[in-house]
């Protein structure tokens, strides 16, 4: 195949996939507001996606908070700003690291599981079986997962923010010899409510991205066990990349502060 036709084929593939994903997303929103609502299924998924992700999110946040304190201490010491370590940890965790790390961890832990489960259901004709039983699979399978991911991501970010700040404080006070009272004072002195809310809002968007991408990949799986494997990998890769891109866009547009102005 020539270079041009292979490029063309890829563009057509990408355009088709984007179109299909948009229709899929529209379908999700259409079903969210149509009764009967499957509240129980949403709670089950909230447990699966949210509750079971708490340990890994907490461990990651703890170590990130700690390392962040350590690293910024090394940097700040060079110009005598060691007291600002708590401030930097708090702002970095709430605005950026909490939401993004949580997003990527949930994409890897719960998103991949969603894609694999739905993909298996697709290749074993369970999704077709739902149609034949006059039950729409988007409503039965996708909507609860989408809602659960969108609701639980901010909750997990609250955990990540708190544990991260505690981790930073642990290292700051325990290893770097900071005064606990001053450290905590510095942590909250410059922290604005907007820092926390911007992170929570971003994480909600990340949750929606994980829900749509991973469910889409699973729902359109083809080609048996191999197809399920590929769909699972793609779901994690695509949702992680989208999270990073959307993170920048949202931060720049919604939550940026003008350089120099503040």
């Amino acid at each position: 195949m020539s270079l041009i036709s292979s490029l063309g084929a890829q563009i057509i593939w990408a355009a088709t996939a984007t179109g299909k994903a948009m229709i899929f997303t529209w379908d999700i929103f259409r079903w969210i507001f149509r009764p009967p609502f499957r509240i129980r299924a949403v709670f089950e998924q909230m447990q699966e996606i949210g509750y079971y992700s708490v340990p890994v999110v907490a461990i990651t946040a703890l170590s990130t908070g700690g390392v962040l304190a350590l690293q910024s201490f090394i940097g700040f010491k060079r110009f005598g700003a060691e007291t600002m370590v708590g401030t930097v940890v708090a702002i970095s965790m709430t605005r950026e690291l909490g939401p993004v790390l949580t997003g990527i961890i949930v994409a890897g832990r719960a998103g991949s599981a969603m894609a694999a489960e739905l993909g298996t259901m697709k290749v074993t004709e369970q999704i077709d079986a739902l149609y034949t039983l006059s039950a729409d699979p988007v409503k039965y399978l996708i909507v609860p997962r989408f809602l659960a991911a969108t609701i639980m991501l901010p909750v997990l970010v609250i955990v990540a923010d708190s544990v991260g700040i505690l981790g930073g404080a642990g290292i700051g006070v325990g290893t770097l010899g900071a005064n606990p009272i001053i450290y905590m004072q510095k942590t909250f002195e410059f922290l604005k409510l907007n820092d926390i809310f911007s992170g929570l809002f971003k994480s909600m968007v990340f949750g929606a991205i994980i829900g749509v991408v991973c469910c889409y990949q699973g729902f359109y799986t083809e080609g048996g066990a191999e197809g399920v494997g590929k769909a699972t990998t793609r779901s994690v890769v695509i949702s992680s990349i989208l999270i990073l891109i959307v993170d920048y866009v949202l931060t720049a547009i919604l939550f940026g502060e003008a350089p120099g102005g503040g």
Binding site: T120, M121, T124, E125, Q126, D128, A129, T132
Partner: peptide
């Protein structure tokens, strides 16, 4: 009513 090749029972 449809019987699928692999039965397609919900796991």
């Amino acid at each position: 009513g449809m019987l699928f090749q692999g039965a397609a029972l919900f796991d």
